[in-house]
Design a protein around this nucleic acid. Structure first.
Lengths: 201, 201
DNA sequence: GGCTTGACTACACGATTGTGTAGTAGTTTG
DNA sequence: CAAACTACTACACAATCGTGTAGTCAAGCC
């Protein structure tokens, strides 16, 4: 990975261009012709290699899924919150995550399955580490969503903190911040209980 | 709000249809004709009232912004985490949030400004309540992103917990879970410090 | 040599896109 | 009563969409 573009086969360049453009603009936001142009090939070749737009999407989903599994799977494994260690997120995975989130939002089953898998893993992890939320499943789902929110709002967060969060400095800042979100208790237990009762009313 | 559709002017019905469809499918995902059909008018009338697709988007952004301000502004005020009280989120605001997130992801300046405003408010709120993160700005930005993540991944979360989170029961569960994310410390302070040092290395 | 196969391009198709124009019905205004 | 205005529809436009077809070129196999 991170090889110069010329080293890749045309098929791989098309796939990478699709992941890049679709991740940035959403699936409807980039056409076959846009992707072909970005990959430096004709639009016909996209069809030749992948058959249809939908099939190209499936191929991207599958590729992203495999890559994520390879690279240690920032989304699915939980070495726990230590997964928030900035060093563990290289640019390659960043792009894949951004794509997967977009694909998820546009109804991809593969991407959604990855999310559900992450929830399972986090659920197990909470058990293992003796964390006892009142609703373990919902707690794990919330954690999974939170982990991805950084990717969704990367532009807004970068603007807010005045640091590009795809840069090492920026990601270190937001990673540390997330860590503290999970660490600094905002309310005393009796306050939580009070709100919980209000919610059940 | 929540009046039957016939009570609204055609202009309002178009705007509401746009917010609904664009929120669900993204901006590129719904055409002027789709919106006109959903509002029960001709596509020409959309142009008559709003001029262009881009102008309709601006109108929707502005409307959503005003409405959010009216309704107590779940995104910008921080009565703090108690804003996670399920009762405070009615369906109307839910739809606006979903739209605003989509609009933000597609580069809306109005929506991004709302996000930045929310970060400001959360920042002030942490000061007020004596919360002392190591990087207050980044901490507030993370909190803002987290608050919106529920909307982005609503389908995935619903699937994960087996409860539609737009229903009162589902939202109560995920609201409570978020509360516990902010309340149960995952790591001891010395562990945090250790990771922090690793990040700076 | 001929023959197949895979990578690749050029071009044309019908559908859909945002937009533009012309015109109708009903109300308001002078 | 006539003129003007507003809400609204029908229809046509050029561009772009995903897709389909035909054909070129080079490498490998008999």
């Amino acid at each position: 990975m991170d090889r110069p573009v010329d080293d890749l086969t045309a098929r791989a360049r098309i796939r990478d261009a699709a992941i890049g453009l679709w991740g940035e603009r959403g699936i409807e936001g980039a056409s076959i012709r846009d992707i072909a142009a970005a990959a430096g090939v004709s639009s016909g070749l996209v069809r030749h290699h992948f058959g249809s737009k939908e099939a190209l999407r499936d191929a991207c989903d599958e590729y992203a899924k495999e890559r994520m599994a390879e690279v240690g799977d920032e989304l699915s494994t939980a070495e726990g919150v230590s997964g928030l260690d900035p060093g563990s997120l290289h640019p390659r995975v960043f792009r894949l995550q951004i794509y997967l989130v977009r694909s998820m939002m546009d109804g991809s089953e593969t991407a959604t399955a990855l999310f559900l898998g992450a929830v399972d893993t986090i659920e197990q992890w909470t058990t293992q580490y003796g964390i006892e939320p009142s609703d373990r499943r919902a707690y794990a789902a919330a954690m999974a969503a939170i982990k991805l929110s950084t990717f969704v709002f990367r532009d807004q967060i970068s603007k807010a903190i005045g640091d590009d969060i795809t840069s090492p400095e920026g990601y270190a800042r937001i990673g540390q911040a997330l860590l503290e979100v999970f660490t600094i208790p905002l309310l005393a237990p009796d306050q939580v209980e009070e709100i919980r009762k209000k919610g059940k009313r």
